[in-house]
Amino acid sequence: MNENRVPRRESNPPPQQQQRRSEMRVRPTGPIVPSVNVSGHALMCVIAIMSFLGCLTLGGVSMVRATAQSWQSQISREITIQIKPDDNLDMERALADARDLALTFSGTTGGTIIDRAATARLLEPWLGGGLDLNELPVPRLVVVTIDESNPPDFAAMRKALTETIPQAFLDDHRTWVDRLVAMASTTTMIGTGVLVLVFSAMVLTVVFATRGALSGNRHIVEVLHFVGAEASFVAAEFQKHFLRISLKGAGAGGLLAALSFALASFWQSQTLATPETDQATALFGTFAIGYTGYLGIFGIIVVIALLTTLTARLTVMRTIYEIDLIRSDPGRTDTFQG
């Protein structure tokens, strides 16, 4: 025997067989849950609408709260001294004395006498133009700015003004501030209640829409479970599917709400000093919601995505549990209908 015989080289497989093996290696596996169907599109639209409404309500509440706080801050920074006219009173001197007396108290930062022209402009919306204040018993005002963190003693200031100028009356705006605080609190509570209702409706809608979408794929769950797939594996596949749907829908709704606030703010900045903008600003303030409002919109998007994913998982687990109950009951031959 020839010990130095060269070993025989195995022949290569035919080219067609090599190509078939290559295709088998690179062929991607299809998703367990159909990625595109009618129920998925409907659920995405529902999530987008409810996300838009929730984000719009949250932004509105934030805007109203910011406007109310601004009003409260502006009112609480000033006090007003009102001097009624009298035949034996030198009004200009009384105004100057009242301002100087108020500035002697600690906590005051400045004082301004409202002149005749400014007083006439204040009364013009009610009494019309061309007013002659000498013919009308119109009180004159002194506006005193105060330090909000260290306000003056209003009782002592009121007593000193009354003793010096009997016609003077100090208005510290406490009544208006209390009313404004009550109004702001009521508005915030109403807005929060609306937000809770919208969010509750969104929760219920997402739950029922998710269950409806899963009921159409119940046969997939049954087949996978019958061939030995674990419940956690099936639930994870459905979670991925509904997470993608919820992120797309919630992201679209949140982006549309943020874009609406941005466009409203841009419109307001471009139409200043017009009657429409002045009325809108007087009622609602500025349409800017700030970074906290946009963070709230992002938070709603995340909550909706997590809620939809959790609902899908719980629904799949419950479906598999019901299938196991049917299989464990030999007396039942019917198939459970969800």
Rank of each mutant, 00 (worst) to 15 (best):
P151D: 13
L101M: 11
D115G: 14
G110W: 06
T109M: 08
N150C: 06
D100W: 00
P125R: 07
K159R: 11
Q167C: 02
I113D: 13
T109V: 10
A94C: 08
G128I: 01
R116G: 15
K159M: 13
T119K: 06
T162Y: 03
P152N: 13
T104F: 08
E135G: 14
T108H: 06
A168L: 03
D132P: 11
T119G: 15
E163N: 12
M157K: 03
V143D: 01
L101P: 04
L131Q: 04
L101D: 02
G111F: 05
A118H: 04
R99C: 12
A118Q: 12
G130M: 03
G111I: 02
V138G: 05
Q167W: 03
A168G: 01
I146A: 01
P125N: 05
D97S: 14
G128L: 00
I165Q: 00
A156E: 14
L127S: 04
T164Q: 15
A168T: 02
L141K: 01
P137K: 12
V144Q: 03
L133I: 02
R158V: 02
A160Y: 03
T112V: 08
L161P: 00
R158M: 08
G110V: 10
F169Y: 11
M157A: 11
A117E: 14
R99H: 02
A102F: 06
T145A: 13
P152H: 15
L161M: 11
A160S: 13
D172I: 07
R158L: 07
P125I: 13
T162S: 12
D115L: 05
L123Y: 05
